[in-house]
Design a protein around this nucleic acid. Structure first.
Lengths: 140, 140
DNA sequence: ACTGATCATCAGTAAAGCTGACGATCAGGC
DNA sequence: GCCTGATCGTCAGCTTTACTGATGATCAGT
C-alpha cells in the first residue's frame, strides 16, 4: 500500500507544509519562505558564519546560497560583514530587523504548525518530532 | 530550537529521501523518480482514470501531469487509452511493462527506506508512518 | 442546438538548484 | 619571499519542475 510508504507520506506532508507556511508568512509582509526562516534561526543560534557553512546546515550548496543571502540582505535581515580572519568568507550577522522579523514569524509558523498537526495531541506531536529527529540526527 | 520545528525536519528528511530514492531507482535502468512510482502504484491500485484524477492524488495540477504521463508512456509503463464514457479524458492503464517495473522498483525502494530509517526499530517505524498517516488523512 | 463547464495540451514564464569557471584569498612547502 | 593547491563567494548557463492562461475537443443541461 502506497500510504505506508515513507516517501509518499513525506512528499505529501512536506508539500502541504510548504503551502501552509508560505501562506502564513506572506501575511507577515516580507515575502520570504520557511527556508529563510530556518537559515536566520540557525544563524541566530550558532553565531556569525560563512555562507557556505550556513548552506551546509540547510542543505544547499554555496552557489545557491548567494540568492538566499541576497534575499535576506535585501530585506535588511542580515548583514554581509567580512570575517577578519579569512577575508574570502563573510561573517553573516543577524540584524535588529532580522530579530524583529524572527519574533513575528515564529508565532505565525507555530500557528501553521498547530493547524497542520491538528489531529495529533501534544504527546503525539512530541513523539512525531522525536522520531524524525532520531532518523535525521542519530549517529547510530 | 529549530530542530523541533516540524517544517525543518520534514524538509531535511524529504531532501534526504529524494537523494536516496533517486540513487536507488537509477540503478533500475529506467530514469524515473519516486513520484512516477507513486503515480503508477496509485493507478494500479485504483484502476484506470484520467490524468487529472491521478494528478489530484499525487498533488499536481492537470498541466503538470502531461509531462509525468509522457515520461511513463515513453518507457512503455502506461497506455493512454480513451475513456469511452468521456472522450475528452484518458483512461490511463498500467501495461505489463509497468507491472514489471513496479515489481523491480518496489524492493529497491524498500531497501532505500530501510537505510533511511535504520535508526528505528520495527515498532518505531510503524509508529512514524501511523502518525504521518493520521496527520495527512484523518478527517477529524 | 446553444451555453457553460471540463479534459488534455501547449506556449510562455518563473523559481530552484546544479555545474563549471572566475578572481580574491588563504595555508603550506621550499 | 614566492609557488602551488585549495577554499569562499560570485556569475553564466543549463536543467528540472511547476505554474498560468489560452486552445480545441467534448460533455451535460437546457
Amino acid at each position: 500500500m502506497l500510504a505506508e510508504r515513507i516517501g509518499f507520506l513525506l512528499a505529501k506532508l512536506h508539500q502541504r507544509w510548504g503551502a501552509e507556511s508560505v501562506a502564513v508568512l506572506r501575511e507577515e509582509g516580507v515575502g520570504l519562505t520557511g527556508m529563510h526562516f530556518g537559515a536566520l534561526t540557525l544563524l541566530r543560534a550558532a553565531g556569525p558564519m560563512s555562507q557556505q557553512a550556513l548552506g551546509e546546515m540547510i542543505g544547499k550548496d554555496r552557489s545557491s546560497m548567494v540568492a538566499v543571502v541576497d534575499d535576506l540582505e535585501a530585506e535588511g535581515l542580515v548583514e554581509r560583514r567580512r570575517n577578519p580572519d579569512d577575508r574570502r568568507a563573510y561573517a553573516l550577522e543577524v540584524t535588529r530587523r532580522g530579530d524583529d522579523w524572527l519574533a513575528r514569524a515564529r508565532p505565525a509558523l507555530q500557528h501553521a504548525e498547530d493547524r497542520l498537526l491538528a489531529t495529533l495531541d501534544a504527546d503525539e506531536r512530541k513523539a512525531l518530532t522525536g522520531l524524525l529527529q532520531r532518523v535525521l540526527f542519530d549517529p547510530a
